[in-house]
């Protein structure tokens, strides 16, 4: 099976129902995408599939063949992703940091679709869990990134 990840084609030989998360982490060594719950509850595994924020822990690879997958490893090369990262750094968002790959990509997906999101848009899109409770800093960083 061929997967297109961050603009590069990868051949993977694995059961087609394997979640994308584990192909990224264990087969391709891209560990920036995190395992948190495995049930699409927490969002730590968020990646972009054709620009849409998607929870890779419940996404079988057979469903994304032919799609363009973007992971946190490529975020700084994406113009919107770069703005988001800078806003994350300037707002000092991360604490333990474990959920932040997913948060940054959720924000990137939002700003690609709604470059000037309302607070409601932000609340609707930024639903990933953060046990450190960085939610206020996340919302502030998304607003900053939209202004950048």
């Amino acid at each position: 099976m061929e997967l297109s990840i961050n603009g590069t084609k990868h051949q993977v030989d694995i059961e087609p129902d394997t979640p994308l998360l584990w192909v990224l982490r264990d087969e391709l060594g891209m560990t920036g995408t995190k395992y948190g719950c495995g049930l699409a509850q927490c969002g730590a595994c968020t990646v972009l599939i054709d620009g849409q924020a998607t929870r890779s822990c419940v996404t079988p690879i057979e469903s994304v063949e032919g799609a363009e997958i973007m992971t946190i490893e490529a975020v700084a090369e994406d113009p919107v992703g770069q703005k988001v990262v800078e806003a994350w750094v300037s707002n000092q968002v991360p604490q333990c940091g474990y959920c932040q790959s997913g948060q940054v990509l959720a924000a990137t997906a939002l700003l690609k679709q709604s470059p000037q999101p309302t607070d409601e848009d932000i609340a609707g899109a930024m639903v990933n869990l953060c046990r450190c409770g960085t939610y206020n800093a996340i919302a502030a960083a998304v607003r900053d990134a939209a202004q950048a």
Partner: peptide, 27 residues
Amino acid sequence: VARLDARDKSTGKAKYAIDLKVDGMLY
């Protein structure tokens, strides 16, 4: 003072125990 780890944690580069790998490793 800004946190030393903010950028690595915003770009997926920070490594946690769950991310580590050594040669010949099984799961």
